[in-house]
Simulated scan of single mutants.
Amino acid sequence: MNLIVHDVVASYGRRVVLDGLSWQVSAGVTGLLGPNGAGKTTLLHLIAGITTPRRGTITAIGTDGQHNSKDKGFGKRIGFVPQHFTFAAEMSVRDTISYAAWVNGVPRRACGAAAGQALDRVNLKERADTKVRTLSGGQRQRLGVATALAHEPELLILDEPTVGLDPGQRLNLREVIADIGTRLPVILSTHFVEDVTHLCQRVGILAGGRMVFDDAVEKLAALVADASVDVGLGSPFERAYAGIIERLGGDNA
Rank of each mutant, 00 (worst) to 15 (best):
R183Q: 15
E160R: 10
V186T: 04
G208C: 09
E175D: 12
R202P: 01
I205N: 00
R183S: 13
F192W: 13
G209A: 08
I205A: 01
L165C: 11
R183E: 14
V163W: 00
I205S: 00
I187E: 02
R174C: 05
I180M: 05
I177G: 00
L158I: 08
D195G: 03
L188H: 04
L173M: 11
G204H: 14
V196F: 11
G168V: 13
T197Y: 04
G164F: 08
P167E: 08
V196Q: 03
G209L: 06
G209K: 03
V186G: 01
V212D: 00
E160C: 13
V203M: 13
R170Q: 12
R210V: 08
L188S: 03
D179K: 14
G168H: 12
G181M: 12
I205R: 01
H191A: 10
G208H: 06
T190I: 06
P167T: 11
A178C: 08
L184Q: 15
L184N: 08
T182C: 09
R183M: 09
R170T: 15
D159C: 09
G181Q: 12
P185H: 06
R202M: 12
I205G: 02
R183F: 04
I180H: 01
P161K: 09
T162L: 06
S189H: 01
I177H: 05
V203W: 02
A178H: 12
R210Q: 14
G164P: 05
G208V: 07
D159N: 14
L158P: 01
V186P: 02
R210T: 11
G168L: 14
R210P: 05
G164I: 12
R170V: 00
P161A: 11
R183W: 08
